[in-house]
Design a protein around this nucleic acid. Structure first.
Length: 672
DNA sequence: CGTCTGCCTG
DNA sequence: CAGGCAGACG
């Protein structure tokens, strides 16, 4: 069916990921070696990151273990598997990624023992998924060499991508699972028999999978119809989703996120039921018990996810006011919602052009995400955190869009590892601290990234988050932006119609566009503006737009910002005039006797006004400008020019030319 | 005509 | 610091 498409998608996504991620950012290709990734990350990561990772890892381990029946098995098979799977891997691009390579062989799971039942459960689920995907690996490994041929054929047929990352590793586990099943069904069956049966199963599963996909596609289409019109990406995404066979679940979840409230409801419910049915059918061949368990698990998970989705959506809708911050955060932070974030980020960040593929990959990734999420997410986050590190304040803001905050990194916590949710949250906290703002995450420019980790901009972002509109604008504005504002939009937030092209255009030309675009100016913005006044007394609207990337500019906002600076100037000139007159009154005869230093009363007054917290080092240039201004006033007053109603204008003209460049740091929405 | 600016006022 | 107003500019 969609084999070709999925592959492409996969490739593109994975490739993009790799490219984008580079060594620093390990965009987890969710499907890939999620398990392996962590290790790879370690190698690259800093000590701190490693430590963090470890912590996280431990938590995760449990989940991972679920997937893998036994370490020993995995280890034993690993050799064969890797080799056998290599071909598929390579074909799938996965091999391309450096991170992947690293990962091969070592599995995080090894460290952690898991409860048997959990393992078994996980293994079953995974197995089923695999089978559905029709992964050759599973057969190969499970059946052994004899089946190799068949397996290869299958492989080729499916080619795919679906095997993706997971599969690489899956083989080991799979073997287990498959074998187990087979045994149950046909104790005496030979390998060949097993192969045949497996194939049959695979076919069945595949068919089911396809039908499920169709259903999903339909759902997505529906959504699209309603919302996509405004959002082109939607279409893309939809298409992608349809193409990718893997993530039925992912798709559904994705759809949920994307989908608006009402539609979500209906669609989700239907989707869920459908999925469940499919699952049932799939499981028939398997042992009753197993199938039942699986069914239960899947059902629960699916329903849970769907419910969560719906709940969230409704919450958002219902509390239009409240939704703002708290909700947003929640949404983003919630594991369920996080689902696609990681993927989105990846995909989006790369480029617009890739949007389509991204969307596709996203959907597919989502499916796997349930499993992979853990490791992958973490990996990303860790890597990010580590890399971003404390960049110097004065940064050369590189245009390249770095992966923003990992906040969302946790992909979708689907069903399998409910426990992960907590761990993810903890992870997040560990990495970013309690303040980490979700809003800034995705699109944060490099500079922002650096700062935010430090919680420097906490107040800023936090404030921003509160902005009512923020959430809505979020997604939309970002996407369009070339920045790579990633996909948080569709995922977490309901699609809101673009209000104006302003933001979009702004985003496009403003590399620093951040996610937390808000409509209103916050006290943080005021503070920032005041500090900026030390550099520029007459900022142009363009400058303001550039340096307030997290503000959704409209006439009002622009006027307000301009007004602020007008007020700043007013105060500034008043002080100047005041001190100039004071100097004259004090009998100062030479302008040269008038200086402005950090000890000056004038400076204190100004600093008190623009830098009340005194936590900002006022640039020397400002002192110079202040002195010049003071001299101007002194001279003018001395010359009794003040008798002219517009005598100050001459001074303004002089001063307006003294603006200096604003440090790049200010471009960071999170500055401060 | 809209925008920006400055001044005045609260 | 915001509103209102008026003047200058393109």
């Amino acid at each position: 069916m969609n084999l070709s498409l999925p592959d492409q998608t996969m490739h593109s996504s994975s490739e993009s990921c790799l490219e984008d991620d580079k060594p620093e950012v390990i965009l987890p290709c969710f499907r890939r070696n999620m398990y392996e990734e962590p290790l790879a990350a370690y190698s690259n990561g800093s000590i701190i990151s490693q430590l963090l990772r470890k912590t996280i890892h431990n938590k995760r381990a449990i989940d991972d273990n679920h997937f893998y029946l036994s370490n020993s098995v995995a280890a034993a098979d690993s050799g064969q598997e890797d080799q056998s799977s290599v071909s598929s891997k390579d074909s799938t691009v996965e091999a391309i990624s450096p991170s992947d390579h690293v990962s091969t062989g070592v599995s995080p799971e090894e460290d952690h023992p898991l409860p048997d039942h959990l393992q078994a459960k996980r293994a079953r689920v995974e197995n089923i998924i695999r089978v559905m995907a029709g992964s050759p690996n599973s057969r190969q490994h499970g059946d052994g060499e004899r089946c190799d041929t068949d397996a290869r054929e299958m492989r080729e047929a499916r080619e795919s991508c679906r095997e993706n990352k997971r599969k690489q590793r899956l083989p080991q586990h799979q073997e287990h699972n498959t074998m187990g099943w087979q045994m149950n069904r046909k104790p005496g069956s030979s390998c060949n028999d097993n192969c045949n049966t497996k194939e049959e199963e695979c076919h069945k599963l595949k068919e089911q999978l396809h039908s499920m996909q169709r259903l999903l596609r339909q759902l997505q289409e529906k959504f699209l119809q309603v919302y996509s019109q405004e959002d082109p990406e939607f279409v893309v995404r939809e298409a992608a989703g349809a193409d990718s066979e893997h993530d039925i679940i992912g798709k559904s979840t994705d759809a949920c996120y994307i989908s608006p409230e009402e539609h979500l409801e209906t669609n989700n419910s239907t989707a869920t039921s459908n999925c469940n049915d499919r699952i049932k059918a799939d499981s028939y061949p398997m042992h009753q018990r197993e199938s039942q368990n699986l069914q239960e698990t899947l059902k629960q998970e699916l329903s849970k996810a769907v419910n969560d989705c719906i709940d969230k959506v409704f919450k958002k809708v219902s509390s239009s006011t409240d939704m703002d911050i708290s909700h947003q955060q929640r949404v983003c932070s919630t594991p369920e919602i996080q689902i696609s974030l990681g993927a989105d980020r990846k995909s989006l960040a790369p480029d617009h052009s890739q949007a389509e593929e991204i969307s596709k990959s996203r959907s597919s990734e989502l499916c796997e995400s349930s499993e992979a999420q853990t490791s992958q997410d973490q990996t990303e986050a860790l890597s990010l955190v580590v890399r971003k590190p404390p960049v110097t304040q004065v940064s050369s803001v590189t245009p390249t869009v770095k992966r923003p905050y990992p906040v969302h990194q946790t992909p979708f916590q689907f069903s399998y590892a409910p426990p992960l949710h907590e761990s993810h949250i903890l992870e997040h906290l560990l990495k970013y601290g309690p303040h980490s703002n979700f809003g800034t995450l995705p699109c944060m420019p490099p500079s922002m990234d650096r700062t935010s980790p430090d919680s420097v901009d906490l107040s800023w972002d936090a404030v921003a988050m509160r902005s009512k509109v923020a959430s809505s604008h979020f997604g939309h504005h970002h996407r369009p932006s070339s920045m790579g504002a990633v996909g948080v939009d569709g995922l977490c937030l309901p699609h809101v119609k673009m209000e104006s092209g302003e933001l979009q255009s702004l985003a496009e030309r403003n590399p620093y566009m951040s996610l937390n675009i808000q409509e209103g100016l916050t006290p943080s913005h005021l503070k920032k503006a005041k500090l900026m006044f030390f550099y520029t007394r007459y900022p142009s609207s363009n400058v303001l737009k550039t340096f307030f990337p997290d503000v959704k500019f409209n006439r009002c906002i622009t006027s307000q910002l301009i007004k602020w600076f007008s007020n700043f100037r007013e105060f500034y000139y008043i002080q100047m005039e005041k001190f100039a007159r004071q100097a004259i009154a004090e009998g100062v005869h030479d302008v040269k006797d008038i200086t402005v230093s950090r000890d000056s009363e004038l400076f204190r007054a100004l600093n008190m006004h623009y830098n009340k917290a005194n936590d900002f080092h006022v640039p020397d240039r400002f002192l110079e400008v202040a002195e010049i201004t003071l001299h101007e006033f002194y001279n003018a007053i001395s010359a009794t020019k003040d008798s002219d109603s517009s005598w100050k204008k001459a001074i303004y003209k002089v001063i307006c030319k003294l603006d200096s460049e604003i440090p790049e740091e200010f471009k960071t929405s999170s500055y401060l």
